[in-house]
């Protein structure tokens, strides 16, 4: 984020003084993968849009430019987090839409999508409208609500996608819980086509994952913690991809963490199936070894799994090869809780 060297905080643009129409972000490291750009230079903005980019040099700017010194800073497009838990309504003691949207803005995110596993569940147009309005009031990162797939996220009856999209929902998901019923997933993918929205799934086969605390492997065996096999994720991944092929719907796979999932997603993409996926920073940078010594912070940081070394390396490959189209932080506030 750019900030004035002299003033400390950036002017808000409300002052009458001169009001230069153009802004120059000078001398920052400008990174934009979509333009294959990673270079130091000056970014010229006009009316809030990028007008020009000058590689590092001694360009001088007249009085109608407001120059912001970005030396030593990274200048990038605003990030979009497609998978956030803002916890409001229901758990305002942990996070509110306002605190989440402000935290996102501070971290360089200009838009976030709020998952619907709130209390009560965001499964109708009124609830979606509430999230949208709270996001607007927060006046930080834009907040895009995601509606539930099923009423109450109970995995039984479809929620009203049409009305939720009308109220501002950008996708549907039962995230926090997997869509256990293949029939419900199929119906959701079909029905969502009318509204052009993706169906995002928390991929975790519930009978394989039941009671699990971490990735199944040598670390779970040593610690005596119940493991979740990677197949719990992969079985749902291939099920969802096959259902997307059958229905022509767009499936979005949440927080992928295993090598097998990446291979299955690649398989689906090669066949033109509408599948997108996301990965979390901690799945790329941490391994199951962080759970050693009963590090309970590591345990609660991820529902599905922090995987083995090999798996993590593979998910990193996914990031580089572009198998995954979106990225996220998986940002979710958790209340620290000691076992009783």
């Amino acid at each position: 984020m750019a900030r004035d060297r002299e003033g400390g905080t950036r002017e808000q643009g409300t002052g009458k003084r001169n009001d230069p129409t153009r802004v120059v972000l000078r001398g920052g490291r400008v990174v934009d993968p979509s333009q294959r750009l990673d270079a130091t230079g000056d970014l010229v903005l006009s009316d809030g849009k990028v007008e020009n980019f000058w590689r590092a040099g001694d360009t001088t700017y007249g009085d109608d430019y407001r120059v912001v010194d970005c030396d030593g800073l990274v200048v990038s497009p605003g990030f979009i987090d497609v998978h956030c838990h803002l916890r409001e309504p229901g758990r305002e003691d942990v996070e509110t839409i306002a605190t989440g949207a402000r935290a996102a803005a501070v971290g360089g995110f200009t838009a976030v999508c709020a998952m619907p596993n709130t209390q009560p569940v965001t499964d109708n147009q009124a609830a979606v409208g509430f999230v949208l309005r709270q996001g607007q009031t927060a006046n930080a990162a834009r907040v895009h609500p995601i509606g539930a797939i099923s009423l109450g996220q109970e995995g039984k009856a479809l929620a009203e996608f049409g009305e939720m999209v009308g109220a501002g929902a950008v996708a549907v998901s039962d995230d926090g819980r997997p869509v256990a019923s293949a029939h419900l997933m199929r119906t959701a993918l079909e029905y969502a086509r009318t509204f052009g929205i993706p169906v995002a799934d928390h991929c975790e086969e519930p009978t394989l994952a039941a009671g699990g605390a971490m990735n199944e492997g040598i670390v779970s065996a040593r610690l005596g913690l119940k493991g979740i096999p990677s197949e719990a994720e992969e079985i749902m991944v291939i099920r969802d991809i096959l259902l997307a092929r059958r229905t022509g719907g767009h499936v979005h796979l949440c927080h992928m963490s295993t090598k097998g999932s990446v291979e299955l997603i690649r398989w689906g993409k090669e066949r033109g199936i509408r599948v997108t996926a996301e990965a979390c920073p901690h799945h790329l940078s941490l391994t199951e070894d962080v759970v050693n010594g009963y590090n309970t912070n590591a345990l609660c940081a991820t529902g599905p799994s922090i995987s083995s070394r090999r798996t993590t390396r593979r998910t990193t490959t996914m990031r580089r090869s572009g198998s995954s189209r979106t990225r996220l932080t998986g940002s979710s506030a958790w209340r620290r809780r000691w076992p009783s």
């Binding site: 610690l223 005596g224 009963y294 309970t296 076992p339």
Partner: peptide, 26 residues
Amino acid sequence: SASGAAQFLAERIESNVINAGDGTHE
């Protein structure tokens, strides 16, 4: 009954802690 309970406790109190069985750990 929870794996890791003894270690969890040991890290948080001054007294000596002896694990007499924690979950499915040791």
